[in-house]
Structures are given as C-alpha cells and as structure tokens.
Amino acid sequence: MIEPFSPRAGAEQLADLRARLRATRWPDEPAGAGWDLGADVSYLRELVAYWADGFDWPAQEAALNRLPRYRVTLGDGLGLHVVHARAAAPAGPAFPVVLGHGWPDSFWRYTKVIPLLTDPGAHGGDPADAFDVIVPDMPGYGYSDRPAGPPVNTIRVAGLWAELMDVLGYPRFGAAGGDIGGGVSRYLALDHPERVVAVHRMDVGMPVYTGDPALLAPEERAFLDSAAAWGAAEGAYAAMHRTKPQTAAVGLHDSPAGLAAWIAEKLRAWSDCGGDLESVYSKDEILTNITIYWLTGTIGPAMRMYRANGAIPPAQHARRVEVPSGFSLFPGDLVRPPRAWLDRIANTTYVTSPARGGHFAPFEQPALYAQELRDFFRPFRDTVRR
C-alpha cells in the first residue's frame, strides 16, 4: 500500500520542545575547551537559544512536505517513509536509484540533491541524466516504523529495499549511499545482483578483515591501521551505540539539548568544514536534522542498529561485490581506502576524489555529489530496460 504522507507536528509538541530547551541545565566547561572534549557548550548554548526562540519548524516542515513523500507498507506490515521523486520529462525510461542514508541523519541527507538528480537540465546538466530518486528512511529512523522486535541490520534493510523497489515498480535499478546506507547498498548488490545494475558508495565504513595480513598490500595495511586509530580516537559513540544504546537513549530522548550535542558534534567532526560547522550548514539546516530525531523519537532505535550490525558474522564482511561498483572518496570523510582495498572488496570500475565534501557530501556539496552519480551511472542507463 502506498499513501501520500505530509506530517504535521502538533502545537503541544513544539511547546514542550521549547519549554525543555529553555529549561536546559548546562554543565560547566573548562576554559578554552572548545570542541576538544566533545561538544562545545558555548556554541550549543547559542544553537539551543535559537532552537527555542528563532527556529521556525513549521516553515521547515512545509518545505520538506513539498517533496513527494509517501508511506509504503510492505508485505510484513512494516511501514516505510519514502521520498519518491520522478524524473522531470525524461526522454526515455528514467534511471531509478535508491539512496541510502546513515547516522545521525535520515532522508534529510538527500533533500538538497533530489532536484539536481530528477531535473539535471534545470541545474546545468544534461536532461538525459535524469533519475527517478527513491529515498527511504531506514526502519527506526525518521518517519519509518520502528522494528517491533530486535533491531534490523543492514542485510535485512537491503532485503526491505529490494521489496520496496518491487512495490514501486522497478525490476532493475541502481543503488547508492554512504555510512550505514553504503552498507545497505553493498548488501543489495550482494544479495540481489540480478536487480542492481550498479552500486555507488561514498565510503566503505570501518573495514573488517579476517584474512592473513601478509596478503595485504602495504597501502592496505596502512589503511587498516589508520581506521583502527580513528576508531580509538573517535569511535566512543559507536561503542556506546553497539553495547549500551539504551543508556544513552534515556538522556538523549529526554533532553533536546543533549540530543543537539550528540548530533551537532558529529556533523562538525565528519564534515569538510575546517572546524567551522556553520561554514557548511546553516542553523536551520542543523536543527531540521535534529528536530526530525526529536519529533519522531527515533534516537534510541537508530542507535540500536549499531548493535545489530555489530553481530553480523565476519563471513558476510568478506564477501566481494561483483556488481559494477563506484566510489567517490570525499576529502573530509572519516577514512579513505586505497584503490587496492577497493579492488579487493568490489568489482571497482570508478574511483574519484572530489575537491570538497565530507561524510554528508550530498548535503554539504549537492552539485558535486549529483555530478558523481550522473557520471558513474551513465554507462548503465540502458541496462535498466532489460
């Protein structure tokens, strides 16, 4: 079942949010700490004050509702929130692509890039490169249903996306994503290679290798070492999500200031912003992402997905993607794999290093990201018609 969907936050919800923001009990902050110890409390005071008394959620919500949004109920009764934006006046069958988001975001990650992909002719591109764009919220994220039982992992979500594309009428399609969404795209290609014509990823996630290190090229070993070092320095959030997500969920679900700290710190650390968060995002954009989490109450289920993914057997990580694969490695992303690693894990046919952008490149640099997808998927357009 497919139904149009335009959510509206109630006045009571927004009044409660503002009251909580105004009543925030702030911690102390060592002099000169800035962002070195985590979230910069001085910046958060400014952000929270704007959230309480300047941020216009109804206006942001209305803008989001101008997207073609739907609720799609799959065969097992799970309801998904999906943006399904069709190509503008395609010359022939449009190329369908399903885009996968990660944490800490939702369909928000792709809101800027959707019009560039559906109507390239209106944005300086070739109209022949138009896409039908499908952006689902993962279960437990955004406006999709939460899993009734244990949290789902990326393998299960890939299966749901395959079913979703059936429901929407796409027997063959492309897949793309970053962060957890990149993993979902990977499993779509692994488990449904007869349907996925090509897969594009922004990253490979934190690498898992269970083979003999002697078989790795020097640059691959260096990559694994750098990823381990990143995890030791920056991965405390993931360890919490994977091991004790409910402990963090109690505070983050109850305190909007705490939620803002948890998310805004990652937006700053993982974006290509040179340490200046608002050089890439406006306050309205930051708070739109965070407010989606607050109003839907999804910070807990979103974090629990890390626990599910942490239990994926090592053998699954060792599988090689044979579907043609492309990688756009943005300079501000978390870790950047060498070509030898990309060839090890996938049938890699395309690798680029765009000039700007980080972990949230579709939102940070939508024009660059749109061009990456146009360039990568262009040779595969005819294959969706077979």
Rank of each mutant, 00 (worst) to 15 (best):
Y293H: 01
W341I: 03
A340M: 06
A315Y: 05
H317W: 15
T349H: 14
A340D: 14
K266V: 03
W270C: 06
S279W: 07
G300I: 01
T291S: 04
R339D: 14
T296V: 00
L277C: 11
R268M: 06
S271M: 10
A318T: 10
L295I: 00
D284Y: 14
K266L: 07
W294P: 10
C273I: 12
P314I: 02
Q316M: 11
R336F: 05
A264S: 15
D276E: 15
H317V: 11
T298F: 10
I286R: 07
I263K: 10
G300C: 08
F327Y: 14
G274N: 13
C273W: 07
P338H: 07
D272E: 03
D333I: 06
C273H: 08
E278M: 12
E322F: 04
F327R: 06
T348L: 03
A346Y: 04
Q316C: 08
I290H: 01
A264F: 12
S279A: 15
D284Q: 10
L334Y: 07
P301W: 05
A315C: 06
S325L: 11
N309W: 00
R268P: 03
N309C: 09
P331F: 12
M303N: 04
L267I: 11
S282A: 05
G297A: 07
D276R: 15
Y306E: 11
G310F: 02
A308D: 04
R307H: 12
D343C: 08
L295W: 02
C273Y: 06
P331A: 13
G300V: 00
T291D: 04
F330D: 01
D343M: 05
V321T: 13
R344H: 13
L334P: 02
K266F: 05
M305F: 13
G332P: 07
G326L: 00
I290T: 00
I292T: 12
T348Y: 00
V280S: 02
G300Y: 06
P314G: 10
N309Y: 00
A264E: 14
W270H: 09
E285V: 04
N347A: 14
I312L: 07
I312Q: 03
I263D: 00
R307T: 11
R268C: 09
